[in-house]
Amino acid sequence: MARQPEGPPPPPTVQKLRLRYAKRGPLRFASHRDLARALERALRRARVPMAFSAGFSPHPKISYVGAAPTGAASEAEYVEIGLAERRDPEEVRAALDASLPPGVDVLECVEATEGTGSLADRIDAARWRVELPGVSPAELAAAVAAFLAADVVTVEKRTKNGLRDVDARAAVTGASAGEEAGCAILHMVVRQVTPAVRPDDVLAALVAVADLRPPSPPRAVREAQGRLDDCGTVADPLGPDRVAGTRCQGEPAAV
């Protein structure tokens, strides 16, 4: 006999907001679970009127899209939240940003437009920037060239089901070597594949093809996420909502 919680069901979702946020500085060491917990608490502190799931343990309606790995910084993390009352997206952004610890910064907030597709469907690739302290730019350029010249670069990767061989090359649609203040920088665009190919896997591939071994741990930043277009650029996944939002303003947002 299934028990039902007493009382009326929770109010429905009346507005979906999509947010882009960054994790920066020391908070790059936060895991996805850490960030999820921090976000839930910040939503409460910011008094965002969240919609909740029904049941004995109601959960706020939050959907996360592909989190950056622990240790990687990001300028482009995405999350969608369901509200039980309408709010102005910019006010939610500002309130939430103020409630999160410095280093987790909410950069954008737009209202999701019905019929323009889910956020997850608009993301299939990421653009990365990896700083390699102690590696010479020329050394990196040679390694990248060797990597791109290969058809397949197999690396070993730890997954839920143990160690597994993954082709790091196939997921990378573009890569180049750059330099900033004497530090070698790897720029690349990586497609979402299963199992995921992460910056660490590409760095392992550079060891495999060119024996590139950075003397100190590289620092990766996810600069963008979105759908890969034909010219190899990553499109803004909030673009369709923004466009639709300007075309048809709904009822004035309550504050």
Partner: peptide, 23 residues
């Protein structure tokens, strides 16, 4: 000490516990 600590954090379990920045 953070500039010298940071490279070490990439090599340990649950590095978030060492970075502070709590609310």
């Amino acid at each position: 000490l953070y500039p010298r600590l940071e490279p070490l954090l990439a090599q340990v379990q649950k590095p978030i516990q060492y970075v502070g920045g709590e609310l």
